[in-house]
């Protein structure tokens, strides 16, 4: 399959076939998940309706993190095997990952205000999400910093790979930093126990976000491929 899709037009055909179905399923899950999350799940006994932000916040955080890993994997395939689609996939993933990490930060902030009373806390998880966001920004900035547009692909891929290796180190050191400095008392320590009635909307929305992510990435890849086709037609005259 890896070699099979090395041919862009073959990939394009496959995407054209799959995409409409994926879209329908993704929006189905999204609608059902939102219904569960907003209408058909109990309010938290402490947090009230504010807890419903979690249904967006947590899946977005998962997607943001996993999309950086995916970015690193694509960069790896691009650098080692020069797989043409890997580069396009990486460039398609990065802005979406940045978007999801921004969404995580924004919803986290909105959630924090009613619960903690402040918009922002320098908590370990928030800080490492912020750093992840800057990793994405760095990737985007580097890949678009060159006058020849395709010139940025390789440096950016190297950066993504280094970022992927560094991500656990950053995460670990931020956690350590956070525990050594006295943690803010409003933060609760230990895991959060979630009632099963809240789990089903969470997982539905997680699947919905995942599908949505895949749909958008495929669409972006298709657009890039089509753009390149047009450009080469223009160049050939």
């Amino acid at each position: 399959m890896f070699d099979y899709f090395a041919n862009p037009s073959r990939f394009n055909r496959a995407v054209k076939l799959v995409l409409p179905w994926l879209e329908i399923i993704a929006f189905g899950f999204l609608g059902y998940g939102l219904y569960l999350a907003l209408l058909n799940s109990p309010a938290d006994y402490q947090q009230g309706d504010a807890v419903r932000i979690m249904y967006i916040h947590v899946p977005a955080a998962w997607i943001a993190l996993s999309s950086y890993l995916l970015l690193g994997i694509c960069a790896f395939f691009f650098l080692i095997w020069r797989h043409p689609l890997a580069e396009i996939a990486a460039s398609a993933i990065a802005p979406i990952g940045a978007g999801f990490s921004a969404l995580t930060l924004i919803t986290g902030s909105l959630w924090g205000k009613p619960i903690w009373g402040v918009w922002w806390v320098w908590d370990g998880r928030l800080t490492s999400m912020l750093v992840l966001f800057f990793f994405f920004i760095g990737y985007l900035a580097l890949s678009n910093a060159f006058d020849q547009s395709e010139r940025g692909a390789r440096p950016a891929a190297i950066l993504a790979l280094i970022g992927c290796i560094n991500l656990p180190i950053v995460k670990f050191s931020v956690d350590w930093w956070n525990t050594l400095h006295q943690p803010a008392s409003i933060m609760r320590s230990g895991g959060i126990a979630i009632d099963s009635s809240m789990l089903s909307p969470l997982f539905t929305l997680f699947i919905a976000f995942q599908l949505f992510f895949i749909v958008i990435v495929l669409m972006r890849m298709q657009t890039v491929l089509n753009n390149r086709k047009i450009e080469s037609h223009i160049l050939r005259g």
Binding site: V131, F134, F135, I137, G138, A141, L142, A145, F146, D147, G152, P155, L159, I162, G163, N166, V170, S173, V174
Partner: peptide, 17 residues
């Protein structure tokens, strides 16, 4: 790259945490 100095700083600082 264009504006290489700023860009370099943007790349380094998150990694240097």
């Amino acid at each position: 790259a264009r504006r290489a100095a700023i860009l370099g700083a943007v790349l380094i600082l998150p990694l240097s945490l």
